[in-house]
Amino acid sequence: MKSRQDLLFEIKVSVFLLVFALVYVILTLVGIDTSGRFLQGNAGLDPTTFPYFIGIVFTGTAFYLLVKSIYQYRLNTEKENTDAAKGIGIPVVEKKPFPFPVKASLVPYIAFIVYIATLRLFGFILDSVLLSIVILFYLNQKNRMRNIIFAIVFPVFVFLLFNKVLDVRLPIGYIFGAKY
């Protein structure tokens, strides 16, 4: 049997999924051109049919998950209350940590957003060198020399490989005179 903490987490997950599904349904209502230009009657379908169908199944499944987790949570609580009435102690469950270190992910995500925002300005090489330095030093400050060498060599190697050998033009950067 799942612990109360796990079931509470499941309820939160279900609520999140339900909201996500409803947002999708709303997007299908407002984000599809239903003015009639694209409607073709012979199959009885239009551009909204498939997204509506997905939205309904998505919402229904998320709702089912919510109802199921609430039901299980209530069952669990009732059982614990009955056990307590019988004098059976409730097992002490250690509080589990959240399954993902949100705080630790902030720096990589912020660094990535800044990278994307400045990719055209600085170009692939400089931007990637800076990103690599930030992340490598964020994770390991001991091997400074190795981090710096890797942060420079790897992006330069990738740039040369793609630009010169594979003919995939990576951005050079406005500050290096690129014109897009």
């Binding site: 997007l27 599809i32 051109d33 409607l39 551009p47 998505f58 998320a62």
Partner: peptide, 26 residues
């Protein structure tokens, strides 16, 4: 099923295959 629906939902973004109508492109 949620994962399948998410995949299908993401797949609906862009021009639709049958009518060429833009969907959720804003």
């Amino acid at each position: 099923i949620v994962a399948i629906c998410t995949g299908l939902a993401l797949g609906t973004i862009g021009l639709d295959v049958s009518f060429g109508a833009p969907r959720m492109t804003f």
